[in-house]
Design a protein around this nucleic acid. Structure first.
Lengths: 225, 225
DNA sequence: GTCATCATGTAAGCCGTTACATGATTGC
DNA sequence: GCAATCATGTAACGGCTTACATGATGAC
């Protein structure tokens, strides 16, 4: 999943490890955030595999934010470093290669089934072809249905074996109901994504404009209320 | 998280590793299911730590399901083993100790922040005191709010730095909106849990019966529709 | 008699976390 | 000068996955 996130972020532009970590944290959330101890080895692996390359003499693709003076300073430090000091800890700007892009495509449509990793794949699914996007969403739908089937199967089996310690307590029941509803919501979201995706593939001659796709972006009316 | 699941399941009754694995899969879901290669070493660690003990001569607390004949057979095999063969791979029935129970309590109210691990903690939160349950739910609420704040902060910062490659595409927008709505739903669920929890702690003299707690168990009307 | 299931483990390898080390630059 | 931030790494450790090994039993 780290690999997917790295390649996905680098698809949006080359940048160095420190900034990369922040972008990845943006995508996967502050919880379960990556650490440098896993990021840098992962970058080394990707470099060895030829999926990324180090771009040594290029200005960072991420423009320094005005409010952070230190970033500008570090940039100038790298530029000024040829004046004498070897600057052993200068920035290393990573770029994705063609091999890395195809590797990302492979990672993205792998039916992994994990919850978090699906979110990561959706976050970068714009780098997929429309067909692969559709197959990604459909695979997730099948996965949700399969999970629901399993849950139903277990419930039925539990009904057949009436042992008192096996019954669900109040909290388990509430949790299961909550998770079921959550799965239903995700189903609906995926259906909307699929609808707009298919509409983009097979556009009807009239009354279909790109704004249709944005319906899926507002499930409850707004982001800030 | 594996440790939590093991101790939580064993709190409901002693059983052997193979059955334990099935119960844990019931709780954490078929995806990210435990493997024997992680379960048995984890059990060994717990045994070394004194959190579980092996109960060698006790019938399994889990009654064999009628439809599975092999389970009965394995039970009889263990019983018959004293007739001669040492039966090196007989069942090992694990039980939780007092130390294991307190360890479970510690694990349960640790504000870990992970999504999956919170579900596991809720699944076994009946083993907590009402006060600790409330603190668990409140910690989760704070965590959700904190996450929302971070997201808002990033959005604001992004607005201040208008670089075109940094804008969210349609899929990222849709994903963020979906996750926001999901967080809102979880908030509401937690509020309901907290309400019933507090009602159980401070019962009003009239019109409050235990059925109030079951309101939280039906967020959308039913489990099977 | 063979296959599936039950049942318990071991070994190798990967990957991630934590902690530590280094060093430049800015701001106070 | 000193703290904080930026920036990149290494080393130790632990845990999880995968694959392998073993062996009993019931069903067909």
């Amino acid at each position: 999943m780290l690999e997917t996130a790295i390649l996905g972020v680098l698809s949006d532009g080359s940048l160095h490890g420190y900034e990369l970590k922040k972008r990845i944290t943006d995508v996967i959330g502050p919880w379960s955030s990556v650490s440098f101890g896993s990021l840098y080895p992962a970058l080394s692996r990707l470099e060895r595999a030829g999926h990324v390359v180090v771009d040594d003499a290029v200005a960072p693709a991420a423009p320094p934010m005005p409010s952070l003076g230190a970033e500008v300073a570090a940039f100038r430090a790298r530029t000024r470093s040829r004046s004498g000091s070897p600057s052993p800890r200068a920035r290393k700007v990573y770029s994705i290669t063609d091999g890395g892009s195809s590797r990302l495509a492979d990672l993205l449509d792998d039916p992994d089934g994990d919850d978090r990793s699906f979110a990561v794949r959706v976050a970068f699914c714009r780098h997929l072809s429309p067909e692969r996007r559709i197959s990604l969403f459909e695979a997730r739908l099948r996965s949700l249905d399969h999970m629901a089937d399993e849950r139903r199967g277990r419930t039925a089996r539990r009904g057949a074996a009436p042992c008192p310690t096996d019954e669900l307590d109040r909290y388990r029941r509430s949790l299961v109901a909550f998770q079921n509803e959550r799965a239903q919501r995700e189903r609906a979201w995926l259906e909307e994504l699929l609808m707009s995706e298919r509409a983009a593939l097979h556009p009807a001659p009239d009354s279909l404009d790109p704004a249709v796709a944005d319906v899926a972006a507002s499930p409850s009316g707004g982001t800030s209320t």
